[in-house]
Simulated scan of single mutants.
Amino acid sequence: MVVLLDREGNEVARSGPVEGEPDEPIDVTVLDAETGDPIQGALVRGRCNFEGSTGEEDQSQETNEEGVATLLIPPSEGYTGCDFNINADGYESDSLRIGYDGVDSDMDMDDPEDVTVELTPTEDGDGETHTATVVVTDIDGVRLEGVDVDVNTYEAGEDVAEGTTDDCGEVQFDVGDGGYEVRASAEGLAQSSANMGLSVREDTTYVINLYDTDEYDGEGPRGRVEHHRTRTM
């Protein structure tokens, strides 16, 4: 944890985890959306992001025979939130978002609870692709032209597609169902680690906010994903 002090030695800001406070375990139960049966071997993978920092703590768990994976959610103080992707062979992927002041989140980081995620089976030989529209802006929401965007598979890190934003700050990719990591790069600008994970199972718009590396204070807006999620608590 990083603590900033004023000249009198008073704390004025901090980032990173709070020492001494225990993580809260939650069970993520992954089920087949059509049969209700547990899915063994589903990969639940993601990260919890430090406030005012690009640091993160990665977690990766496979579900057991009961379809359950246990995640550790840190205390909210010192963190902005957690992002997880859920993937299983033969199923459309899903995502789980915790914290971020409740904006586009599935639960509050101060009160995490067990959650059930239902994955929809994919049709054999379907081969359907979806259009992923990536919009890149600065932290004030101004769209940026000429930003390079790379898309990789979330689990294996394999290259999927690359492109450059047009004069509307957009670039489109045709991708299949799955979890992806989307990285945008431009000189003098940086991307938060909280703003990279993307789960695709339908046409999706993904907004990436880039910040000035010399001026960003850790409080800028996070990215948002516009797609449908199915889950039960």
Rank of each mutant, 00 (worst) to 15 (best):
T70W: 07
E145N: 14
D114W: 12
T165F: 07
P121Q: 02
I139A: 08
T204Y: 04
L31E: 02
H228K: 12
S105D: 09
P121S: 04
C168D: 14
L4N: 02
A132S: 05
G81W: 07
T230L: 04
D32P: 02
M107H: 15
D101M: 14
V225W: 00
S76I: 08
D150P: 04
G20D: 02
L4R: 05
D214I: 10
V12T: 07
T137F: 10
V182H: 05
D32T: 01
D138N: 15
T120E: 11
T129G: 07
T230G: 04
G157M: 00
V3S: 03
Y91S: 06
F173E: 02
V160W: 02
C168L: 15
G127T: 01
V115F: 13
D140Q: 14
M196Q: 08
E57T: 13
R201L: 05
E226Q: 15
S95L: 03
E57R: 13
D114C: 13
D167C: 10
L210D: 07
G90L: 03
G218L: 02
V171W: 03
R7E: 10
T232S: 15
P75K: 09
E92D: 06
P74N: 07
M1A: 06
A184C: 13
G41E: 00
D101N: 15
G223A: 11
S105G: 15
D212S: 06
D159C: 00
Y211F: 15
G81M: 10
N87A: 11
R47W: 00
D111H: 15
D167E: 13
I208T: 04
T232K: 14
L210R: 10
A42Y: 03
V182D: 01
T129W: 00
F50I: 01
M107Y: 12
P17S: 04
G146Q: 11
V207K: 13
D174Q: 09
I208F: 01
A42T: 07
D203G: 06
P74I: 09
N195E: 11
Y100M: 15
E226H: 14
E158N: 04
V3G: 00
N152S: 06
I73L: 12
P22I: 08
Y206N: 10
P74F: 06
L198R: 09
T116I: 11
V149Q: 03
D150S: 14
G157T: 00
T80C: 10
D23K: 12
V117A: 08
Y216C: 10
S185T: 07
T133E: 12
V134G: 03
G67K: 05
V18M: 09
D114N: 15
N85I: 11
Q40L: 02
P22V: 08
